[in-house]
Every structure is written in structure tokens, then in C-alpha cells.
Design a binder for these strands. Structure first.
Length: 600
RNA sequence: GGGGGUGUAGCUCAAUUGGUUAGAGCGCUGCCCUGUCACGGCAGAGGUUACGGGUUCGAGCCCCGCCACUCCCGCCA
């Protein structure tokens, strides 16, 4: 190693020391007679001084011509900066290095965008940042994210090791199991027409590991889903995958609470209180209209079904008569909502099949609304009391079947929060983290089009024991032993106690999900077989590692915590992948491409 | 698959809403400058307004198409 110190190391006490520093030219300030270069490496930066009075002219000349981000090595002497020239903004601001010699290790071309000024760099088009990701990652903000991600991964491994878990790697060339997400397929050269699939998760392998007697397994597992992307979804992502034997749900709650406690302490030096609150699926929908509620602000949903039973307002009265519910929400301080904002909310309602969105604007001492004239005094009094209506409020209603009504207002609640945040009327402490477990999900949902049940989580989730008899009589009532961990409205992960009895698993596959017996055998036969030979009761969970890091870094886009992420269309701009391959490669794989690639 | 947004100098953004030669800051090039740290000063170069059509006397601006990026819905067992 050539350097004696890194660029965030020298302090006043080092004055007089001869040092060698290496790094990138962060910025250069040429005052004519004297030249300052801030040298930056991964750790930070140090000011170096080029004074022509004690430097060969050639060195001074070369230094004055350096472009930003050139890589250099300097040798010099540390000295305290003259009084009044110290820089309190950087940790090395007390000192500077008086350069005696310099080597240009590699000059840099002129940059496509500036990386030295964070205010400028933060605004650079993400497309350009992705094309030159290596430059983007040099920015201290991005380097901080990479470093934090690494710390969190190591803390996770250390905690899981402390808890007696084995890290086991599972294959990424797996079998296609076309339930759920679309898979990436990998052609098999050795047998034409057969394919591997990249795993959507190591779910089946980790359950097999339980049958193997591993008892406690974890993995930072790369997973692949060929679905459309979002700010919080990439085609390949990392999950903290966990499975345990001989446990109940409580064991998972305690394990994960301990893990997140360790992670928050490591990453943010914060002590988060445990245990986390637990909320049933039904309560989450009733109060927040979503199964991953953001509980950092109010505006909860309120039920008015009884108040509007037989109401003169036909839409409400008929809805209740038809078995539906009336839900309302008070968007505090949003009476001034624009026509456009109300239209956006109405669109949300319509996207859930509602005909429109009823509202009341409370302004200038009156209720402005096309529907208020139908309300009687008792109905008005109930609204005022249960919603705490005040001047400046906006009241929104949903009248529909229970799930729909809840989900409509749940969407609108989140939209209203965004509007209020933008107006400065809603402020949320960035250091606030509301963790909660969402539990007691229904095991199954019914698909009317396909006329069959589907797993609301996945088909390996165990029913609550006392509900097992209902599987054959009243599947809708069966609760699953499933749990989601939610923080600030983000689904951080989910898991369940699994089915470990081959016969129960077979019933789920064949009778409820109506997968034909021979297909069950083809896809899951090996699992059912494994379960015959002493499968222990087991359960587990998977946490989205990218989302976890994003939350800790205070960003909403997981691209900011992934070194080389893909664009919304699943491409890598830097390497131009995916790309066409040669005819020979295709022949080897016995593949013929039918749709011609468009000319570039 | 659907809906919204964006695309103007290397970067970030303007352009009086269809009107003369498309501007600014940063960056870049040259010159000046011995205590800067967003150094400063002077001068200069740099544009197929993403791309292809159309309407118009005239298009960065309007229309059609197309590409890329982005946000959302669907989708994500």
C-alpha cells in the first residue's frame, strides 16, 4: 500500500508528519500563485496545497492542468492551516498537506456531469446517472448508501448467527413453478425444449431444508420476478430469507423484532421499542383501508353503516340494504382541495368500480356538498361527532361492499396525505418508524372469473389449527397463520407457519386451488414426497432487503440502494442489457426467435 | 396491457404561451490572480430544441407518430 493515510484521517495532531495520500481530484482552486486541490477517497477529503516556491515548476504546471476526478498520488507534509482559513465543514478542515511531489496515476476525461457539488449532482437525470453509474457511486451520498447496506447485511448475518441459524445457499437455477409471479426462464442446452427458471424466492428449498433437519436457516437470497417494475420493485432483488422448525408465530415475531432492533441500532444508532403492535387484517382495512397501514398520521376511516341504514340519500340507503357499508374519512384541512385533486380522488374510487365519490367541503360555516340536502339532523350530528368535523375539513365517503369501500378510502387517505405534505400542513418526523405486524389474513380468496379459490399469500401457508375443518365446508372463513411486517406504510416482509402434513398440502393444491392431481405431482410432487418422511412443523419469513435499506437511507426508490439497478423497462443502461445474441448461441440452445428484433 | 409526467448547450433550467439571431448559472477553453474551500475577474467556444412526419407566412411551443426515462393502475402465488 502506497498511501500512509486515507483522506479523512489527518488532524491537527498530525502536523509536521510526512504523508502520502492517494485519491481523486475532487475540486481544484487555482489562485494563480497558489493552488489548492481537495483530494477525495472513499473516506473523505483533504485539502492539499501546491506552492510554486517550493515545488518544481513542472509539478505545479501539471497540477494546474488536472481535470476533476483524475487519480493522483501526492507526497507532502501535514501542517495546520493559517488562522482564519480553517474549514469547519470537513473533518480534516484543521489541516492541509503541503505537496512536495505528485504523480498522476490516471488523468480523467471531462465529466458528463459534475460529481463534486451534491446540490447539482442530486438533480442530475437518473438516466445519465445510471449510464455513468461508476461516477454516480463516487458521490458521498451514494457511497454512504452502499456502506450502510453492507453494514446492515453484516449485522443481519451476525444476529442470525447469534441466534443459531445456518446460512445455506440454494440454487438459482430452479424448476419452473408457474403459480404466482412470471418467471425468468433459462434454456437447457442439453435437452431441447426444457428450461430452468430463476427462483422468485427460495421458498421450496428452505422448506426442504427444514425436512433436512437444519432447523434454523437463513440466506441473503437473490430473487427474480419477471413482472413490471416500480420505484420499490426490481426484476432481481435481495431478500433476507428465514425458516425455522418447531416454532409458533410468536417465535418469528420475537426473532424479527430482535433483528430489526439490531439493524436500527447498527445503521442509525436508534433504539426501536419492541414488541411491535399487532393489527388484524380486518382492523387494518377498517381503520386505514389497506393491509400495510401508515400509522404515522391520522385521518382514519370511520364506519357509518348503521347511521345511514334507511337513509333518504338513496346511494347510501340502497348500499346498506344491499349488504354494503358506508365508510367516511375526514381529510383535515383539505376543504380547499382543487377540482383536479377531487377528480384524482374520484378516479381512484372509479378504478375500484365505484360510480363516484361523495364529499363535503366544510367552509365558511357551511357544508358544501351536493348530497348534504338528503341528510337528516341525526345523520349530520353523527358525522360531526364521529369525524370531529371542523372548519376547513374535507369529508369523503365510500359506499360499497366492505373490502371495496375500505380500499377506496385507503387509497384516497394516502393521496390526501401527499397533498397535505406538499402544502406543509402535514409534517412527519423523518426519524419516526411505526412498526407493526399485520396478522390473521384470510387464507384464501375467491376468483369469480376462474371460479376457484386462490391463496392470498402462498399455497404453503398453514391454516389456523382450529379452522382446518372449515377448509372443506366454508373456506372463506379459514384464517391463515400468515403475518406481514410493516413499517411506515411499507410492506417490509411477510411469512407464515407452513403446512407440514402432506395430506393437508394435497387438499389445498387439488381441492381448493384445483390444480389437477397429475400437475400437482409434476410441480410439487417432490415436496409432498419429502413431507412423508418426518417433516417437522416449521415456518418462516422473508424481508425485502432492498426496501429495508431504502427505509434506513431515507429514500423511496430502491434503485438508490442497489449498486447497479435496472430501469423501469428492466434494462441496464450502462451495459445495454438485455441484448441480442448470436445465431450460434441460439442454435446451441435449440431456440428460434420468431419476432424479428426491431432495427436499432 | 392502460393512464399521467418529462425530454431545449456536457449538466441544471429559461424562452413574454405561434413571431426577428433560442438565453442564464455551472462545467469546458484561453488570459489574469498567493489563502481558497460553490475562490474571484475578463474573454471565448459550445444547439439537427430526443427522433420522424404534418398544420402554418412562420413551430422549441399546435397536431399525428415514434423512442427513452419516470410515476401510477393492472400484475407482483
Amino acid at each position: 500500500m502506497k498511501r500512509t493515510h486515507h483522506c479523512n484521517e489527518l488532524r491537527a495532531s498530525d502536523a509536521g508528519r510526512a504523508v502520502i495520500l492517494t485519491g481523486w481530484v475532487h475540486s481544484r482552486r487555482d489562485l494563480g500563485g497558489v493552488l489548492f486541490i481537495d483530494l477525495r477517497d472513499r473516506e473523505g477529503r483533504t485539502q492539499t496545497v501546491f506552492d510554486p516556491s517550493d515545488l518544481p515548476p513542472a509539478v505545479f504546471d501539471a497540477a494546474s492542468k488536472l481535470h476533476a476526478e483524475s487519480v493522483i498520488e501526492i507526497e507532502g507534509k501535514v501542517r495546520n492551516r493559517p488562522e482564519g482559513t480553517r474549514n469547519a465543514k470537513i473533518l480534516t478542515g484543521e489541516v492541509e498537506v503541503q505537496v512536495q511531489s505528485m504523480t498522476v496515476l490516471n488523468p480523467s476525461a471531462i465529466l458528463p456531469f459534475q460529481v463534486d457539488d451534491p446540490e447539482v449532482a442530486n438533480k442530475v437525470n437518473e438516466e445519465l446517472r445510471l449510464q455513468y453509474r461508476y461516477l454516480d457511486l463516487r458521490r458521498p451520498e451514494m457511497m454512504r448508501n452502499l456502506r450502510l447496506r453492507s453494514k446492515v447485511a453484516i449485522a443481519t448475518r451476525s444476529y442470525m448467527d447469534d441466534q443459531g441459524f445456518l446460512e445455506v445457499e440454494t440454487p438459482t437455477l430452479f424448476k419452473s413453478t408457474p403459480e404466482g409471479a412470471r418467471e425468468f426462464l433459462v434454456p437447457n442446452r442439453r435437452e431441447p425444449g426444457t428450461f430452468y427458471a430463476l427462483p422468485q424466492s427460495p421458498q421450496q428449498f428452505k422448506q426442504i431444508l427444514m425436512v433436512s433437519g437444519v432447523e434454523r436457516y437463513f440466506q441473503l437470497a437473490r430473487c427474480y420476478r419477471d413482472e413490471d417494475l416500480r420505484a420499490d420493485r426490481q426484476p432481481e432483488f435481495t431478500q433476507v430469507d428465514i425458516e425455522m422448525s418447531f416454532i409458533e408465530r410468536e417465535d418469528i415475531y420475537a426473532l424479527i423484532e430482535g433483528l430489526l432492533k439490531r439493524v436500527w441500532k447498527t445503521a442509525l444508532n436508534m433504539d426501536i421499542p419492541t414488541p411491535f403492535k399487532r393489527i388484524s387484517f380486518e382492523e387494518a382495512l377498517n381503520r386505514w383501508g389497506i393491509d400495510k397501514p401508515d400509522t404515522r398520521f391520522g385521518m382514519e376511516l370511520v364506519d357509518f353503516t348503521e347511521e345511514f341504514r334507511g337513509s333518504k340519500f338513496g346511494v347510501f340507503g340502497n348500499c346498506v340494504a344491499g349488504g354494503g357499508v358506508i365508510k367516511a374519512m375526514n381529510a383535515k384541512g383539505l376543504a380547499g382541495a382543487t377540482q383536479g385533486q377531487l377528480e384524482t380522488m374520484t378516479e381512484y374510487a372509479k378504478s375500484f368500480g365505484a360510480k363516484g365519490l361523495a364529499f363535503i367541503k366544510v367552509e365558511n360555516g357551511e357544508w358544501k356538498s351536493p348530497i348534504v340536502k338528503f341528510f337528516n339532523d341525526a345523520e349530520k350530528a353523527a358525522l360531526t361527532e364521529k369525524l370531529g368535523i371542523e372548519q376547513g375539513d374535507l369529508i369523503l365517503f365510500a359506499a360499497d361492499q366492505w373490502l371495496n369501500a375500505c380500499e377506496i378510502l385507503g387509497k384516497i387517505r394516502l393521496y390526501c396525505a401527499e397533498v397535505l405534505k406538499a402544502q406543509g400542513k402535514l409534517v412527519i418526523d423523518p426519524a419516526r418508524f411505526d412498526f407493526l405486524w399485520v396478522v390473521e389474513f384470510p387464507l384464501l380468496g375467491f376468483d369469480r372469473e376462474m371460479n376457484r379459490w386462490y391463496s392470498s399469500h402462498h399455497p404453503f401457508t398453514a391454516p389456523v389449527a382450529e379452522d382446518i375443518p372449515l377448509l372443506k365446508t366454508d373456506p372463506k372463513k379459514v384464517r391463515g397463520q400468515h403475518y406481514d411486517i410493516v413499517v411506515n406504510g411499507v410492506e417490509l416482509g411477510g411469512g407464515s407457519i407452513r403446512i407440514h402434513q402432506a395430506d393437508v398440502q394435497k387438499t389445498i393444491f387439488e381441492e381448493l386451488l384445483q390444480i389437477p392431481a397429475e400437475e400437482t405431482q409434476l410441480r410439487f410432487g417432490y415436496m409432498l414426497e419429502a413431507f412423508k418422511y418426518g417433516a417437522p412443523p416449521h415456518g418462516g419469513i422473508a424481508l425485502g432487503f432492498d426496501r429495508l435499506c431504502a427505509i434506513l437511507c431515507g429514500t423511496t426508490s430502491i434503485r438508490d440502494v442497489i449498486a447497479f439497478p435496472k430501469t423501469a423497462k428492466g434494462t441496464c443502461i450502462m451495459t445495454s442489457s438485455p441484448s441480442a445474441v448470436t445465431g450460434r448461441q441460439l442454435r446451441d440452445l435449440h431456440i428460434e426467435v420468431k419476432a424479428a428484433k426491431k432495427e436499432a
